[in-house]
């Protein structure tokens, strides 16, 4: 892999508060998912990579050059910030065009590029609306438009799917995949595992400012699968279901939920458990209303991995 972004023993403190600690990693073309619960250090890492913060210790390099105050490198980077912040006096079209003007593009060139970017995120028809009239999904897509408008080689997307409805999420996931297919180096942060799984197989898990695990999704899943999972089943007769699974080796514990129709199973072998559950449902004609996994969120994964 050709490293486009390289962090070497990178650390950052905010006064006495640790933001990032001794992070070393190399990121090449394609999508890399940065996963971690709130406060894990994802945004700090992204701010360091985009030169908004100066490392307290260590180095961060883009194309082999330190990024802090390296103005020239910013033409090759597009950054989509997490915060929902805009110049509300502007229209969507003006926002992208004027930011391109800052990059030094002529008015004609800026307008052409803005049009291309806005069409890419399907906002061209809304370009003359004031930003304060944009929905959350539109604003999120507009942030992506300003990120890609100057055609950067590296895209840093901080929680681009945060707070979006499923339809908008799908649109943005498709946009990011298209950018990956165009050969960009992309870092996407999120605290929701399925969102990152929808984008990439290469992820970095951050927790309390440190890299907890790094690799592809199956590797991370393996790590997770070594730990027990909770599976909640809502059905008409939870006691009958529980008795059918009670003696199975893949079931570690059974607990009845606060709602009368809910039973929660704890298993260390999800695949075996789901095989059994499916067979039992079919054989006994169980009327199942809902199957959920309370652990299917990143906080639970981290809790498992850090042993809390």
């Amino acid at each position: 892999m050709t490293a486009v972004i390289r962090a070497d023993k990178l650390s950052k403190w905010y006064g006495n508060v640790l933001g990032l600690s001794d992070v070393s990693l190399e990121i090449g073309p394609g999508i890399t998912g940065l996963l971690g619960p709130n406060g894990a250090g994802k945004s700090t890492f992204m701010k360091l990579v985009t030169g908004q913060l100066k490392p307290s210790l260590g180095r961060v390099e883009i194309f082999g050059r330190p990024i802090w105050n390296a103005t020239g490198l910013f033409a090759r980077i597009g950054f989509c910030p997490e915060q929902d912040a805009f110049y509300d006096e502007l229209t969507g079209g003006e926002f992208v065009t004027r930011l391109l003007g800052l990059q030094g593009f002529s008015r004609t060139e800026a307008m052409a590029r803005a049009e291309k970017a806005l069409r890419f995120v399907e906002l061209f028809a809304e370009k003359d609306r004031l930003l304060r009239g944009y929905s959350r999904g539109m604003r999120q897509r507009l942030k992506i438009a300003q990120t890609i408008a100057h055609d950067p080689e590296i895209l840093i997307l901080d929680e681009p799917l945060n707070g979006l409805d499923p339809l908008s999420k799908r649109k943005i996931i498709r946009l990011i995949r298209d950018l990956r297919d165009a050969g960009r180096t992309i870092i996407v942060s999120s605290h929701v595992l399925p969102e990152i799984e929808a984008l990439t197989r290469s992820i970095v898990l951050l927790h309390q400012g440190k890299i907890l695990a790094q690799g592809d999704i199956p590797y991370i899943r393996d790590l997770i699968d070594k730990h027990p999972h909770k599976i909640s089943v809502k059905c008409a007769d939870p006691r009958a279901l529980a008795s059918g699974l009670l003696e199975q080796p893949s079931v570690r514990a059974i607990q009845f939920g606060p709602e009368a129709e809910t039973v929660v199973f704890e298993t260390q072998d999800r695949d075996a458990f789901f095989g059994l559950l499916t067979r039992l449902i079919v054989e006994n004609g169980q009327d199942i209303e809902e199957i959920t996994s309370p652990d299917d969120n990143l906080q639970a994964v981290f809790d498992y991995l850090v042993g809390t």
Binding site: Q52, T71, G72, F74, F79, P81, A85, F86, L99
Partner: peptide, 15 residues
């Protein structure tokens, strides 16, 4: 306050 500084400091514009 508007959290828009990011749009400026991540451009190829000297501070």
């Amino acid at each position: 306050e508007g959290k828009t500084l990011t749009y400026l400091t991540t451009r190829a514009v000297p501070k």
